[in-house]
Design a protein around this nucleic acid. Sequence first.
DNA 1: TCTGGGGTCCTAGGACCC
DNA 2: TCTGGGGTCCTAGGACCC
Length: 422
Amino acid sequence: MARVFALIDCNNFFASCERVFRPDLWHKPVAVLSNNDGCIIARSNEVKALGVPMGVPLFKVEGLLKQHGAALFSANFTLYGDISQRITDVMSSMAPAIEVYSVDESFIDLTDLASSNYAAWAEEVRTRIWHETGIPVSIGIGPSKTLAKAAAEYAKRQGTTGTHLVLEPSDRLQLLEWLPLEDVWGIGRRFAAKLHAFGLRSAADVAALPDGWILKEMTIKGLTTVRELRGDTILLLEQDETERKTISRSRSFGHTIRNIHQLESAVATFTAQAMVKMRAQDSVTSGIVTYLKTKKVNDTNRNLATVTSFGEPSVDTGTAIQAAIEGLARIYDADFGYQKAGIILVGIQSKEAWQLSLLMPDSKRGKRTDLMSAVDLLNRRFGPETIWHASQNLRAARWHSKHELRSPAYTTSWHDLPTLHR
DNA sequence: TCTGGGGTCCTAGGACCC
DNA sequence: TCTGGGGTCCTAGGACCC
C-alpha cells in the first residue's frame, strides 16, 4: 500500500513565538538572536524581506533593523519549548502516528488516516494549531518524507493556502523543477555547490541522474534522498525516543575568560546539566570530552580538546565533574584568553545493560545513584540549581552569556504571566 | 568591538588480529 | 626474491539536520 506523509512546519517559529504574547508586533519585523545576542537565528517575513540572512552577526545588520523598527529578542528556549509541546499535543490528537523531528517540525504518517481527504485534514490541523497556540504552520503532503518536506517549503513560499499536496506524478515533477538543489532535505551547501559545477540546478535535475553516479559522488545517503524525490518511500517515521549517544553542553562567553577557576565553574556547570539529561534517559556514561576555544590570535581561533575516561560507567555528577576538570587542566594554557568552553558526554549506554553486567552489587555505587536521583528530584521541584556541586561555584561565576533582550517566560513562570488590562 | 548550540551518520585510514 | 586475505574496532574528519 502506498504511504502518505505530511510534514508540518511552523512558520518562522521563534519569531512567531515572540509574537504570541505581543500582538503589537504582528506585521512588524521581528528577529531572534542566538545565545550571547551574537547572530540572527530566526526572522519574521518582514525581516527576510529586508534581505537579512540566517545566521548573520547582529552587528552587520543592526543598523538596517533599527532603521525599520525591528523588534529584537534574545533566544528564549524555555518559551519556545513549551509552545512546541502544545503544538505537538494538538497534532497528536489528530494524527495516527507522529514523529517530532525538531522543535518546529513534525512528520505524520497519514497512511492509516480514516479519510483520504488530506487537504481538508490539513486545513483543520492548521486552524486548530492557530486557534490553540497562535502559531502559523505550513503543511506539505506527499508519498515520501523528502517530498512532504519539499511540499511544505513550497506551501510556505509559493502557496496561498498554507498546504501543498504532491500525490500525483505531475504535481511531483512540477515541484521538483521548482525546488532548488540546496533546498532539498539531505543535500547541503557542499553537495549543492558540487552539483552546480555539473550544471545541475533543480531537484528535477538530480532526480534524473543515474543511481551509480549518485552513489559514487553522494554516498548512500544521497541515493536515498534522490529515490525519495522520485516518489519512492524509503524513510519511515522514527517514533522511538532513541537514547542520545552523546550529550553536550557548551557556551560562548559574554566576554573573554582567562581565569582557570572561571573555566572550571563553567565546565562543571555544563557537566552537571548534561548529566541531568543523561540520567533522565536512564543511561550511564563512561567518559567526557572537555574543550576550549581560544580568542583569536593572528585571526585564528585554536580549538583544544581532550577526552577523560571515568574508568567505569557512572551516573554520578561528581565523578563526571572531576574528570572534566582534570581534562581542563590538561588543555588549559594561561597564555590564552578563551571565548567558549564545552563538554561532551561520550560512551553512553543504557543503565539496564550496565546493571546486568555487574557481578557484585556495589553499595557505594547504589548510594550515589540514589543521591543523584534525590538531587534531580529536588531541582525539578524547586527549580534548577536549587542544589549544585561546589565546583560549579555559581555565586562567583562571571562566564554567563549575554541575553539582554530576553522576553518573559510567559507560559512557564508564575512571575512572568502576562497582565491583562481592563 | 562584535559570529549559536546540539545532534546524527558515513567514510577513510590506522591498529590490530588470525 | 618476494610480501595474502579477511576481519574488527576505533578515531578523525566531513557532511548533514534543526
